[in-house]
């Protein structure tokens, strides 16, 4: 390979990196705006031309936003739902995905397509009947109503099945020859090899239940059973919206997901280094 083409390559990859950095900037600007709004006074919000920094940093917006409503309780409720949802989806989705990716049985593909088909009905239509069921079960205002719809997802099954399919079969075949059961192969080989995918699913399951709005609103009547996203929405009433407090609450509610993302990110990296496939 000649040196000129090499430096051309270098240039191109520097340009690519720069492009990615610039694009990242457009990702963060709206959030800086959100953050700055959360620190503004009521009349300062949306000045024209817009102000990028508050005249004085009103940190009290944050304490007010979190005490105007029982946000501690909202966080607790949401954390319970999110934990159940992550645990449920990691277990149930990976089990189903294993069956679809690795087990041989007749009707497998047809069944998988039937699973997929259920993703295609818009949530707007399943909302009412699912709610009717919750009422019949007597689960209104309970954690059961909040988390049971979240503990499995076809999206997650689809995700994991796609990943399981990329795992080389020789490892399991070797284990099978050693007499390992399918359950053991699933638990000891497939799952450890799928950490990046599991981390991905975990993040999305956490996020899904953390950001869910319409369902928790509909299956709860009492303030003490509500979740953080409902709390944020409550700052918009019929006639006006309290933007500084709403933005402050939105920023605080975002933090746990960002933390979870950072935490799970390590697993992405560890996922590649410890898959055992190098050995």
């Amino acid at each position: 390979m000649s040196t000129t083409s090499k430096s051309g390559n270098e240039k191109r990859s520097v340009a690519a990196s720069l492009g990615v950095l610039l694009l990242a900037l457009t990702m963060i600007l709206p959030f800086l705006w959100m953050l700055s709004t959360s620190l503004m006074g009521e009349l300062e919000v949306y000045q024209f031309p817009p102000r990028f920094l508050p005249s004085t940093f009103r940190w009290s917006n944050f304490t007010e936003a979190l005490t105007l409503q029982p946000f501690g309780r909202f966080f607790l409720n949401t954390a319970i739902v999110a934990a159940a949802s992550v645990a449920g989806q990691l277990l149930f989705c990976s089990m189903a995905a294993y069956a679809f990716a690795r087990l041989r049985f007749r009707g497998r593909d047809a069944l998988f397509r039937a699973y997929l088909a259920t993703m295609m009905i818009p949530a707007m239509v399943t909302l009412i009947p699912a709610f009717l069921l919750i009422v019949r079960f007597g689960w209104m205002n309970t954690y059961w109503a909040l988390f049971t719809p979240m503990i499995s997802s076809v999206w997650g099954i689809f995700l994991l099945r796609q990943f399981f399919q990329t795992i080389p079969k020789d490892l399991e075949d070797a284990a099978r020859i050693d007499g390992a059961s399918e359950v053991a192969i699933f638990w000891r080989i497939i799952l450890p090899l799928s950490r990046p995918a599991l981390a991905t699913l975990g993040i999305f399951a956490f996020m899904g239940s953390w950001k869910d709005f319409l369902w928790p609103l509909i299956v709860t009547n009492r303030t003490d059973m509500r979740t953080v996203e409902v709390g944020i929405a409550n700052f918009s009433s019929m006639y006006q919206t309290d933007w500084p407090h709403q933005m402050a609450a939105a920023v605080v509610v975002m933090l746990p997901i960002v933390l979870v993302f950072f935490f799970a990110q390590r697993y992405f990296v560890r996922g590649i280094t410890t898959t055992g496939m190098k050995g």
Binding site: R106, I121, T126, P129, T148, V154, I157
Partner: peptide, 27 residues
Amino acid sequence: QGGLALGFLAPSMLHLVVFTATPILFA
């Protein structure tokens, strides 16, 4: 491995029946 597969699929299937299939039938 149909029997085994059913075991692996049971939780997600039950979930699907309650929260998706029933609503779809209703729709």
